[in-house]
C-alpha cells in the first residue's frame, strides 16, 4: 500500500530543475506527481514517477542527491468535502501529516492525495478503518 517517492536536493540556481526533467525524459520516465518545498537557498523536489528504480539510478548517475521514501496514496471524490473527510480521519486520532500534495487521476476520475507521515503502517490502518480508498503502487505507476 506504500508508494515510492523520490526526493531530490536542489540548490536554487537557474537551470537545475530543467536538468532533472531532462534526465527523466531521456530515460523515458513519466512524472505522475510533483511537489516542491523551498527556502531561499535550496529546495526539495518530491516526485512520484512510473519507474522509480530507473529514475533513482539515472538521477544518481547525473550527480543528484536523492532520498527514497514511502508515501501513501489515497483516492478521494473530486467534490467539495472530499479532502475534508480524509483529513478528519487523521485529526480524530491526532496523527500528524508531515506534508501532502495532490493530482487528478483521469482513469479513476478521482483526486489522488499523496501523504507523508512518520509511521506509514499506522496511517494505513487508520485509513482502512475509516474506509478510505488506498491506492496500490502499481495503480499509480501504471496509469
Amino acid at each position: 500500500m506504500q508508494v515510492k517517492q523520490i526526493s531530490i536536493f536542489v540548490e536554487n540556481r537557474a537551470g537545475r530543475l530543467e536538468e532533472i526533467s531532462g534526465v527523466l525524459e531521456k530515460e523515458n520516465i513519466n512524472i505522475r506527481a510533483l511537489s516542491l518545498a523551498d527556502t531561499s537557498d535550496f529546495g526539495i523536489i518530491r516526485l512520484i514517477v512510473n519507474k522509480p528504480d530507473a529514475a533513482v539510478t539515472a538521477l544518481r548517475e547525473a550527480g543528484f542527491t536523492i532520498r527514497e521514501s514511502n508515501v501513501i496514496a489515497c483516492a478521494i471524490e473530486d467534490k467539495p468535502g472530499g479532502l475534508h473527510r480524509l483529513l478528519k480521519l487523521f485529526a480524530d486520532l491526532d496523527v500528524s501529516i508531515e506534508y501532502m500534495y495532490s493530482f487528478f487521476e483521469r482513469h479513476l476520475e478521482k483526486a489522488v492525495i499523496i501523504i507523508r507521515v512518520e509511521d506509514p503502517e499506522e496511517a494505513i490502518q487508520i485509513l482502512r478503518k475509516g474506509g478510505a480508498e488506498l491506492l496500490k503502487a502499481e495503480q499509480i505507476y501504471a496509469a
Binding site: 517517492q5 526526493s7 518545498a37 526539495i44 542527491t65 521514501s69 508531515e98 506534508y99
Partner: peptide
C-alpha cells in the same frame, strides 16, 4: 547524501 531528508524541517 546519507543525511539528506525529504522533510524540510529536518534540513532546517
Amino acid at each position: 547524501e546519507s543525511f539528506f531528508s525529504d522533510e524540510m524541517k529536518k534540513m532546517r
